[in-house]
Amino acid sequence: MAAFFLRRSIIIQKEKSEKEKLQKEIELNYLKQQVNPHFLFNSLNSIYALSRQQSPETPEVVMQLSELMRYQLESAKKDMVLLKEELEFIENYLLLEEKRLSNRCNIEFVIEGQVLDFTIAPMLLIPFVENAVKHGALSTNNQSTIDVTTTITGTTLNFCVVNSKPSLTVAFKRKGTGLENVKRRLQLLYPNHVLDVEDGEKKYHVNLAIDLKATQAKTGS
């Protein structure tokens, strides 16, 4: 009996220290590349162009970028953030990319169900969206689509990203360390998650289901 508890506590401690280690790594990564410099300077260039034309859109785009950057800086320090904030961040990101891509990409961002005061680990969802933009829209001159649908049923979050696949891409590589990182984090933070990836002929689907209840207890601060 004693041996069992001892082993169990060792396992728990090991898990805990791995989580801590991972958290440190993530923080470090954020510090290293808080904002993707391409994204930042391209966005600034869009704003520069809009302000030169004295476009009435300018103030809005400046706010989107500033909110996005602030969130990236602040969420890096936290274990958990409000789901609402994480989704707003994704929306800001998509709005900025939509501006950059002009009419090349149709972006849909839909939230179904009540966001309430659910919390989520920060930056968990964005890599799927970034990948959709990178591989679905930025890699082609043709018209592309990205649909991001968030559905909350009870305490279950379904996060679904669908992007059109460019027909003319020579080598469609779908790897990248970003996604590997997320998979590791999901494994540790949401061991019961379900991640479905469907690499179709014309579309690329990612569907992530996680239970928000497991982490809701920590809210309040």
């Binding site: 391209n42 260039n45 869009s46 520069y48 162009a49 809009l50 030169r52 002009s102 001159n141």
Partner: peptide
């Protein structure tokens, strides 16, 4: 340049 806004600046 693949971004319209970026082209606009250079065109001007």
């Amino acid at each position: 340049d693949d971004e319209i806004l970026a082209r606009k600046v250079l065109e001007d």
